[in-house]
Design a protein around this nucleic acid. Structure first.
Length: 252
DNA sequence: TGTCAACACATCCCTCTTAC
DNA sequence: GTAAGAGGGATGTGTTGACA
């Protein structure tokens, strides 16, 4: 039923997906049925890497620990010590000014001039099945991914696939309702595909749900139904073992 | 139109831990 | 002791948007 969604042609540069115009590496034809299925990117076109703080102190299993760290940073009077505590990088330093993340309060001061000792905290998915607290502040996150924060909503579901490294065991995709870290999948990158856009509309090709509703004959198919189906098919080791050779090229 | 800063993405490197 | 994997972080390259 999905076959018509994947239409790949050969050109001078390699295999090109005619829907996304993405050039794919040469891969041999297989008898596993891999080519018969759509890529996850085809079903959920919008994706993003997860958040990347580039400093470990902003994340902890304990919210109280983060409050203590933040208060210690804000109260530090020595500029050198404050800089060391903060761990300045190319993208964030004590003088950085940033727009607030969607849905979070504005903090107009730089971290260097901050006086509020109460940080904004959020639950995030640091690794698969590893939920932790994060200081949800654009001034301390090198790659905060504002789009993901904008898409955070009660019915949201983030699917995550390994997009940059091969996998040879375990599930080929994982799901979480919390905003994932960039290394959420297995500590090695991964691409996050939200089920819903920031405006609440499904992150699916136009007409897909109605097509599935008609072709399956099971009644209305919702975005959540499709996400559950994707997880049921891909998020277990049997899928990875069956398509082990194909998964040497990252992407599900 | 050119410059610059911010951002996106991928990749590489270093350190530490764990298994053998 | 050594190799492999995991985790954290730096950085190269390209894109985009603001602004002079």
């Amino acid at each position: 039923k999905f076959r018509q969604l994947r239409d790949i042609r050969l050109d001078d540069a390699g295999w090109r997906d005619t829907h996304t115009e993405r050039v794919l590496p040469f891969t041999p034809l297989t008898s596993s049925g891999w080519q018969d299925f759509p890529a996850l990117n085809d079903l959920m076109p919008w994706g993003s890497p997860g958040i990347k703080a580039n400093r470990s102190w902003v994340c902890s299993p304990s919210a109280e620990t983060l409050r203590r760290r933040w208060a210690r940073l804000v109260r530090e009077a020595d500029p050198a010590d404050k800089s060391a505590l903060f761990k300045e990088t190319r993208d964030r330093d004590l003088s950085s000014r940033r727009e607030p993340l969607p849905g979070l309060p504005n903090r107009p001061r730089t971290v260097g001039n901050e006086t509020d000792t109460h940080p904004e905290l959020a639950r995030v998915s640091l690794r698969s099945f590893d939920r932790q607290w994060l200081i949800a502040d654009n001034r301390v996150l090198d790659r905060p991914r504002p789009d993901l924060w904008a898409a955070d909503q009660p019915d949201q579901l983030f699917l995550n696939q390994q997009s940059s490294h091969e996998i040879d065991s375990g599930p080929a995709a994982v799901a979480t309702h919390l905003i994932p870290d960039t290394h959420h999948f297995n500590g090695r990158g991964g691409r996050v595909m939200p089920l819903l856009h920031p405006d609440g509309s499904p992150n699916l090709p136009a007409g897909l749900l109605s097509h599935l509703s008609r072709s399956t004959g099971t009644g209305p198919v919702s975005a959540a139904d499709l996400a559950a189906y994707i997880v049921a098919v891909t998020a277990h080791s049997a899928f990875t073992e069956h398509f082990a050779e194909e998964l040497l090229t990252p992407g599900v």
